[in-house]
């Protein structure tokens, strides 16, 4: 029999300290994340050209961005065309960067974690491959501008002899070219991020029970079989995670496309939707177009959500779902029998 004192002690709750400890996060989150987030949705439905007292315009901003503009409505044409051009760039650059990136990272991750590969200096290579990710995007853009710039005096053009006017070699215009610039951005993105993805996949592989690999080895599986039959299927969850984060990051790609240009005008062939968002409310300082920016953000959000849901749907555990469905049917059946008195055909 517990005494009264024992009962009291039992009911002392330490949970409130837990709440106090997590409070700062929620306060900061509500002020700096949730409020701006909701504000973005609100702004998307309001007029442009000011900072305060904006009129409610319903879906007009979305209509301007998405619908085909009327002839001679240059404003709508400008916004509509720019958005879709930038959307196209975003998708092209993302696909062109994600596929090589994941392939390279997966290959390296498998090599680095393979028990049979005795590679010297593993730690060194991991660090070196992660390194580009540490450099700020601004420096990376500066670096690539001096390597691949349009000028006769960029490294690549100097190697071709463009810095000598006697030779008369026309300099390569990589940055202002359409596909050359896109490929360059894809390359930069892969170069910056493959180390990061590799580390993530490695941790996924290391999470797989080692005895499975050992068993496979004993059973005589070669490394290809080990990869396709063990590593890859068990890596599924972490792959889904990588795909999702990469997709969200890719659709919001901003820094390199924004900075890889000289002069005042952003390179339209590599500009992404995030650049569009930035441009819209920066173009006229006195009259910022927050509405279009916010609407574009919301469109991006919807696209991201749909794609995210799609990834989850594709990657769902079909066996588990099948089982759950069966169980539900059995229960139904059992209930029906109980009700109907065991009548069946």
């Amino acid at each position: 029999m517990a005494t009264a004192a024992q009962k009291r002690i039992k009911s002392v709750s330490y949970a409130k300290y837990g709440y106090i400890f997590i409070l700062p996060f929620f306060v900061v989150y509500f002020i700096f994340s949730l409020y701006p987030l909701l504000q973005t949705f609100i702004l998307a439905f309001h007029a442009n050209g000011g900072r305060t007292n904006l009129a409610f315009v319903g879906l007009d901003n979305f209509k301007t961005i998405l619908a085909t503009p009327a002839e001679n409505d240059f404003k709508a044409m400008g916004i509509h065309d720019t958005f879709w051009r930038y959307m196209k760039n975003t998708v092209i650059i993302w696909v062109g960067n994600f596929i090589p990136q994941i392939a390279l990272s997966l290959l390296l991750a498998v090599w680095f974690t393979d028990l049979r590969v005795k590679m010297p200096g593993k730690g060194f290579f991991k660090v070196v491959m992660y390194m580009p990710n540490i450099i700020t995007a601004a420096s990376v853009a500066g670096l690539y501008l001096s390597l691949f710039g349009d000028s006769s005096y960029s490294v690549i053009n100097m190697l071709r002899g463009c810095n000598n006017p006697e030779l008369g070699v026309e300099p390569l215009k990589i940055i202002t070219g359409v596909w050359s610039a896109r490929v360059l951005v894809m390359f930069i993105q892969v170069w910056m991020w493959f180390g990061n993805t590799m580390i993530m996949l490695m941790s996924g592989i290391q999470g797989i029970n080692e005895s499975l690999f050992e068993a496979a080895e004993i059973d005589g599986a070669n490394s290809r079989q080990t990869f396709w039959k063990i590593t890859f299927p068990l890596l599924k969850t972490i792959m889904v995670y990588t795909l999702l984060t990469s997709m969200i990051g890719g659709l919001q790609m901003f820094d390199i496309p924004f900075m890889l240009h000289t002069g005042n005008v952003i390179n339209e062939n590599i500009a992404t939707v995030a650049v569009f968002v930035y441009q819209m409310f920066h173009k006229n300082f006195a009259k910022p177009s927050f509405g279009y920016s916010a609407a574009a953000s919301v469109i991006l959000f919807v696209i991201t959500s749909i794609l995210g849901a799609l990834v989850f749907w594709v990657q769902r555990d079909k066996d588990a779902m099948e089982k759950a469905k069966k169980r539900r049917q059995q229960i139904k059946e059992a209930k029906r029998r109980a009700k109907g008195g065991g009548f069946s055909i």
């Binding site: 700096f32 994340s33 409020y35 701006p36 987030l37 504000q39 973005t40 702004l43 700020t136 995007a137 601004a138 969200i248 990051g249 919001q252 901003f254 820094d255 924004f258 900075m259 995030a274 968002v277 930035y278 409310f281 927050f290 920016s293 916010a294 574009a296 953000s297 991006l300 959000f301 991201t304």
Partner: peptide, 12 residues
């Protein structure tokens, strides 16, 4: 990941 305006964009 997806809010846009309202805060100062940390654009370098």
């Amino acid at each position: 990941a997806f809010y846009a305006c309202g805060t100062d964009t940390p654009a370098n």
